[in-house]
């Protein structure tokens, strides 16, 4: 994740509290998703950006996961997401993100 966006997320976490935030991604491929999820939960894995060593523990979703799409009105879902759902294979991303979210919820218990 680029450093500028890391900086914005850090600022928003300060402003709203990380527990009140969720990140929703639109990545096309799984490889990018892992890094994004790690960055906003455990901190920047490259140890170079503003989130280096900052574990915000913000839950991360992909826009095509059912947890997200079920909240999107039918007309918007058809118009904006139908094609992407044919193009993007969300299943491997879902596995990564579910694991990441489960880790967060157990950590909180």
């Amino acid at each position: 994740m680029n450093f500028e966006n890391q900086g914005v997320i850090k600022r928003l976490a300060d402003q709203y509290g990380p527990e009140n935030l969720a990140v929703v991604l639109g990545n096309g491929e799984t490889s990018g998703v892992e890094v994004f999820a790690e960055t906003v939960t455990e901190g920047d894995p490259s140890y170079a950006g503003p989130l280096a060593g900052v574990a915000l523990k913000i839950p991360v979703y992909h826009v095509l996961e059912p947890e997200v799409t079920e909240s999107v009105p039918e007309n918007l879902r058809q118009e904006k997401l139908e094609l992407s759902s044919l193009v993007i294979d969300v299943e491997p991303m879902r596995q990564v993100l579910q694991a990441s979210r489960e880790k967060l919820s157990t950590a909180r218990l």
Partner: peptide
């Protein structure tokens, strides 16, 4: 939750995620 939408040009762009949510 309040949402931070991080899109990708070749996936789903930010404005589209924001509009849907």
């Amino acid at each position: 939750k309040k949402v931070i939408a991080i899109g990708e040009r070749d996936g789903v762009p930010g404005p589209v995620i924001a509009e849907c949510l």
